[in-house]
Structures are given as structure tokens and as C-alpha cells.
């Protein structure tokens, strides 16, 4: 890409953000009552810079991310395993389908009080909520992937005399891989969603709890600051995995 085009692209991407900041800044200058809800760009900026060296912030941040990572890893593994194994057993698939659909359609945040009642205010209940989201995303994505094996390729595999192991590793898994990967990308975002929601319902530590704490004090600048940190983390990972996807799925359009 020529230098000119890069500059144009950067400008194009920065412009909406700059406009938004300007509008925000002007709004709170014109009407000082709005500061109560909107805080100010300067307040948010000062929270962000002070949070970098704040031990309290980082311990909450790590608490959330730790729970997110655990629920992501466990949820992905079990979701992928079930999503591949279940459609290979059509009867089981049919039997559990309504139950899986029921569980998956529950608003999982509503389960948070249940998990908290069973598992307490610590790590386990947060992980449970995150897990309940991640598992179903991976389960459904992998299941759809496994079921989408091309009939003609299956026929070719038969004509070439694939063993069942070869059928699994050379046809089934590669077919399911794109759906699996997009499930993994989505899974991280949803793990964070589950963990933070659970923290908001009740917890001793974490970014969700921090948001509740600051909003109770009407320190909106800090609330927005925490939100920005969450966005940077989750968005950053989404972007990175997007790059990875481009490499791993180069064979797709």
C-alpha cells in the first residue's frame, strides 16, 4: 500500500473517535450538569493514567482476566469435544437437542445468582457463568461444522477407501475448523461477558465489582475508564485472533 493510502486510512479511522471526543468535550463545557452523567474526557484520561500504576486496579483486572481465561479454556475444550462427538452419534444428538436448545436459550446472567448460591462469591461462580456461555457457542459451532461435510467429498473419501480415523482427521476436522475457530474468537468475548456479569451480581473482586463500586459513588469517569480497559483487552484479543484466522484459514476466501 502506498504511503498516501495508509495515511488516508489512519485518518479515516481516527476521525470518528476524534469527533466523538470533541462533541463530548463541548457538551460538558456547555452544560455543566451533564458532567454528573457523562464525566469529562479529562477525568476519564486521568483515571486511565492513574490506573496504570494502581495496585488495586490491577488486582481486580487480573482477577477478572484469570476467571475469563479459565472459563474460556474449559468451555472451549468441553464445547469442542461435545460439538464433535455428539453429531457423530445421531441418536444422542436427537435426544439431547431440545435440552441443549433450552439451556442455550436461557439468559445466562439469570443463572449467576444460582451459581453464586452454590459456589460462593469467589472464582468458581464467575467461571461457571462464563463457562455456561462459552460451552454452548463452541458446541453449536462445532456441531454445525461437523454436519456440513460436503456429500461429494464424503463420497470421494469413500471411493479412496478412507479409514474412519482418516475420515475424522482428514475430512471432518478440517471441515469443522472454520466454524470452530470463529466460535473460539467469539468465545473469549463471551467468557468476559459472563465473568463480568457475575461480578456485577455479586463478588469480592473483579472489574464488574469495580464498576458497581464506582457507579455507586457516581464516579462515572472511573466507570468509563474501566469499560475502556475491558474493551481494549477484549477487542485486542479479537483483533489478534482475526490476524491468526487470516493465516490459518488462508484457503478460504
Amino acid at each position: 500500500m502506498p504511503k498516501n493510502a495508509i495515511a488516508r486510512r489512519v485518518l479515516l479511522r481516527i476521525a470518528p473517535g476524534a469527533l466523538f471526543l470533541a462533541a463530548w468535550w463541548i457538551a460538558v463545557r456547555k452544560n455543566e450538569n451533564l458532567i454528573f452523567y457523562l464525566s469529562t474526557p479529562q477525568n476519564v484520561a486521568s483515571f486511565l493514567s492513574s490506573s496504570i500504576s494502581s495496585e488495586n486496579f490491577w488486582s481486580n483486572y487480573l482477577s477478572t482476566m484469570y476467571a475469563t481465561l479459565i472459563s474460556f479454556v474449559i468451555g472451549s475444550f468441553t464445547g469442542i469435544a461435545a460439538g464433535i462427538a455428539v453429531p457423530l452419534m445421531p441418536r444422542l444428538d436427537e435426544a439431547i437437542e431440545p435440552y441443549a436448545a433450552f439451556l442455550n436459550s436461557l439468559p445466562r446472567i439469570a443463572l449467576a445468582p444460582v451459581f453464586i448460591a452454590f459456589l460462593g462469591l469467589g472464582l468458581l461462580s464467575k467461571v461457571a457463568v462464563g463457562f455456561s456461555l462459552v460451552f454452548f457457542i463452541l458446541f453449536y459451532n462445532c456441531r454445525a461444522g461437523v454436519k456440513s461435510v460436503d456429500d461429494d467429498l464424503r463420497m470421494l473419501a469413500h471411493a479412496l477407501d478412507f479409514s474412519s480415523t482418516q475420515l475424522f482427521f482428514k475430512l471432518l476436522i478440517p471441515t469443522a475448523w472454520p466454524a470452530m475457530f470463529s466460535g473460539l474468537r467469539l468465545g473469549f468475548t463471551y467468557a468476559l461477558l459472563g465473568v463480568v456479569s457475575s461480578e456485577i451480581v455479586a463478588s469480592r473482586a473483579g472489574l464488574g465489582q469495580l464498576i458497581m463500586f464506582y457507579s455507586a459513588q457516581f464516579d462515572m469517569g472511573a466507570v468509563y475508564g474501566v469499560l475502556i480497559w475491558m474493551g481494549i483487552t477484549s477487542g485486542g484479543i479479537y483483533w489478534l485472533t482475526g490476524r491468526l484466522e487470516k493465516r490459518l484459514l488462508a484457503w478460504k476466501v
Binding site: 470421494l156 471411493a159 479412496l160 482418516q166 484457503w251
Partner: peptide
Amino acid sequence: YMVARDCLFPWRRVLQNVTLPLEV
């Protein structure tokens, strides 16, 4: 065996598609 549709595995490069039956 060869049919009207090429039935290539989209995730395999050209060479790997041709080696597939030999791999099996």
C-alpha cells in the same frame, strides 16, 4: 474415480490434494 465436480479439498494446497490418495 473422477466426477464432474473436481471434489478438491479446499484446505489442501494443490500438491497436497494430489498426494491425498497416496497418503491414504
